[in-house]
Amino acid sequence: MQPIESAQTAQKLPLRDIHLPPTPSWWPLAPGWYLLIVLLLLILLLLWFLWQRAQRLRYRRQVLQQLDQLAKMDSDHTLIAELSVLLRRSALHAFPDENCAALNGEEWLQFLDRHAAEPSFTTGIGRCLAAGPYQPTSEVDRDALLALCRCWLKRLPPTLRSRRKG
């Protein structure tokens, strides 16, 4: 008979109804949300840096595309002249602080060698770029010269900021 007596005793006790806890607030956030926010910010920062790098290297891609167009030329003399112009424009863009616009002949070849992997302009196939554009006819190993120019153009540094005209 104890269960009946305990039920009667429980009814006499001053008990209140069950209160539910308040619903959780959205603030402060759980630690997992902070981790997710930091991760998203890092991903956005990485994407921004990659986009900036792609913008800085865009001129290099454009110059290499122009080099591919020059490779289709028939005349060796025209090829040498156009390669000389392409290398000079690229040097002016990549090295604006150096006075490479006024260089010619041996000084121009030495400038190209300073920014190349090996001295192939002053002592190798690239020597034809010094006087070749100014001679009436020129013959050269096209593939070797194009490979040398491609290697030099690939080594150009990324630009620090966009140099857009207009």
Rank of each mutant, 00 (worst) to 15 (best):
Q2P: 09
P3M: 11
T9R: 14
L13H: 11
R16W: 10
I18G: 04
L20C: 09
W26Q: 13
L29Y: 10
L35I: 09
V38A: 15
L39M: 12
L41Y: 09
I43H: 09
L44S: 11
L44A: 13
L45N: 08
F49P: 05
F49E: 13
W51I: 08
Q52A: 08
R53I: 05
R58T: 06
Y59E: 02
Q62I: 05
V63A: 03
Q65P: 01
L70R: 01
M73Y: 10
D74I: 13
D74K: 15
H77Q: 14
E82Q: 13
L87E: 01
A91M: 06
H93K: 06
A94K: 00
P96A: 06
N99P: 07
L103Y: 02
E107N: 10
E107R: 10
Q110Y: 04
A117G: 09
A117R: 14
E118A: 15
E118M: 11
P119C: 06
S120Q: 13
C128T: 02
A131Y: 05
T137F: 12
E139C: 07
D141P: 08
R142L: 05
A144P: 00
L145G: 02
L148A: 03
C149N: 06
K154I: 03
P157F: 02
P158F: 00
P158G: 00
R161E: 07
S162R: 09
R163S: 08
K165F: 08
K165W: 11
